[in-house]
Design a protein around this nucleic acid. Structure first.
Lengths: 152, 152
DNA sequence: CTTGAAAAGAACTGCCT
DNA sequence: AGGCAGTTCTTTTCAAG
């Protein structure tokens, strides 16, 4: 865990909005020289706070208009069940996120499909046939908004 | 909606793993010249498929060790209820993602907190006081894995 | 689609305050 | 910590085949 000052937070905030900003642009924005801004970004990367940069793909533009969140409860629990489930779920390309959780469910999956008919196919042929699956609950996503989150 | 060939998919796949790759590196990897790879990336951006690049922040390294998913059902429904809820939830910095969903819940929230005690504070003072909140269900995240997802 | 070239900018280094 | 100067690499945009 690293100590962040206001400038670090400002840099993270700016990068959270646009990860393509370089050290020069950041420096100009916050009154630092290019090397100074660069050193701060590098320090944040090395501290592990800035863990990387990920693509934002528009599923809609790719033809995947349906996003569904699934809560899954395993029928049988135990180390083997979790490992079997996790291995099998990785083979389903429509599953974008696998979250191991504690609570009423054991796993939460974010699944994309071309349309509802396509989602039904994925659900019946891929999800419901996963090893150890017990109860399944679905929430269809209407819209999503991301926020920067607390920064230290 | 745009037509993607195998090379486009390969580029998106490589960028999904590491969004910092430039046109030069992509070209070398897939047997294209640097300008050819650059034009493809630009085309994907202009088509809206490649919607941007986002930071990956390590909440753990920032001191936020607890991530909880909340399913929230509103007690009262209607246009005003949704607008009120969405406006109020935006003011909570610990809420990183707000998903409007269809199903047993109306909203799903991804919430980060420093620890369980901090989460209890957020839940009781911020979440449970949101306008119109009915039923709340929580799942504590143990681990998360992201996968590239289907690319066309 | 390619190559080549040129301009601009970004990344990185070393030294100094 | 920050700045300045300088080198090197990449990106971006040409022109031409």
């Amino acid at each position: 865990m690293i100590a962040l000052d206001d400038t670090d937070r400002a840099i993270l905030h700016a990068l959270a909005a646009d990860a393509t900003l370089g050290a020069g642009a950041l420096g100009r924005r916050f009154g630092l020289s290019q090397p100074a801004a660069w050193r701060r970004v590098k320090r944040l990367e090395e501290a592990g706070v800035l863990a990387g940069r990920r693509l934002v793909l528009d599923a809609q533009a790719l033809g995947f208009g349906v996003t569904v969140f699934l809560g899954i409860k395993l029928a049988i629990k135990g180390r083997i069940s979790f490992e079997d489930f996790e291995r099998a779920v990785q083979a389903i390309p429509e599953v974008q996120v696998v979250q191991h959780v504690l609570g009423r469910f054991d796993y939460r999956l974010k699944v994309v499909a071309r349309d509802i008919a396509d989602f039904e196919r994925v659900l019946r042929r891929r999800i419901m046939t996963l090893p150890g699956v017990g109860q399944i609950e679905a929430n269809v996503m209407l819209s999503e908004e991301r926020r920067p989150g607390p920064l230290g």
